[in-house]
Structure formats: C-alpha cells, structure tokens
Amino acid sequence: MSQNSLRILLVDDDYLLAKGTAKLIERLGGHRVAITDKPDEIFQQCHSKAVDIVLMDVNLPEAVWEGREVSGADLSRIVKNDPETANIPIILISAYAMVSERQKLMEISQADDFWPKPISDYEALLLAIESQVTKH
C-alpha cells in the first residue's frame, strides 16, 4: 500500500468540490492528495520533488503569476517547460469538456492527459494516474 501510495497535487479553486475529489482519491486509491489553487505553491511543491503527479483544474479565476492572470493550462505549461519539473505528469481535469476546447487546452498546457468534469468513474481515473506515474 505505502509502496504504491502516490503524492498527488490537486489544483482547484472550488474548495468544496476539491475536498470531495481528494477524499475519493485517497479512500479509493490510497494516495495522498494536497489541494491548492495558488501558483507559487504549485511550483514550490513540484520543485521540492514532493509531488508524483498533478491534477490540474483549468478555470482558476484568482490565479495570478508574475502579474498576469493565468489558467490551469498556463500553469501546466510553465511546469512542463521547466527542465527540473518537466517530468512530473500532469492530468487536466476541466468542465470545459467540449472536444474543441479540450484540443485547445491540451495544446496550450502540454499536459499528459485530459479528464472531463464531473468524474464519473474514479477507478478509471486512478488507473490513468498510476499509468502516468509509471510512464514517467
């Protein structure tokens, strides 16, 4: 159990929603989930190697980085473009679930996978999380 236990960073600005998601992942998959919606915290966590995978929401109305409003897709790209954090897998989880939006978001974010909100099949998500971590 502890061998397979992953350190997951869940980025979401809707705290109640994120709390539910985190609880389900922890209880169903046995992983540890940290919740944040602050860009500096995300980068710090990634740099400290305390994160195995990031689950990233896209709509983050309060997120500002270097004076600019940023979305989850922007934050994902920043993580991916930093050689020190580039190998951390990122899965986008967004309510912007339409195909065209999805393609555009994947392009911008350079993320590894995309899951639409709401998540109806947590078991499948957990398999995807584990396979991404194994891949990297």
Binding site: G20, A95, M98, P118
Partner: peptide, 14 residues
C-alpha cells in the same frame, strides 16, 4: 456546459 458541470461534479462527488 461548464457552469452545469461544476455543480454536477460536486453533487456526484459527495
């Protein structure tokens, strides 16, 4: 679509 999915996600989660 986005605005409907967000409360739906919460409902489903809980």
């Amino acid at each position: 679509s986005h605005e409907l999915r967000t409360p739906l996600a919460s409902t489903l989660n809980y």
